[in-house]
Amino acid sequence: MPAITFIHPDGKSERVETADGESAMQAATRLGLDGILAECGGNAMCATCHVYVDESWLARLPGMADDEDALLDGTASERLPNSRLSCQIKITPGLDGLVVKLPERQV
């Protein structure tokens, strides 16, 4: 299964094995990773699973829908050009090795 890496604001990194068809958010919450809240449970309604995607991976991610784009305007930590909601990043084999940074705050 593809593995992805979350980098915490303090620089500590955690490598996470994903399960079949999971989103990056689902892998993180299943394993109890701090820094992803996912209050809405993955329905693209809350903006509390915000991540900064490593620039080298950005172009390989699935495109951004309008609702994700609008939610990112309201994130607790600043929105940057590489901001995404991790519930909208479904992990496919092509995303094995993906690296994302966690923001300081989710609420």
Partner: peptide
């Protein structure tokens, strides 16, 4: 995360 107190899916509470 994942509780259904606000529902889930397209009708999940819009005022959550």
């Amino acid at each position: 995360s994942g509780h259904v107190g606000f529902g889930s899916g397209i009708h999940m509470c819009v005022g959550q």
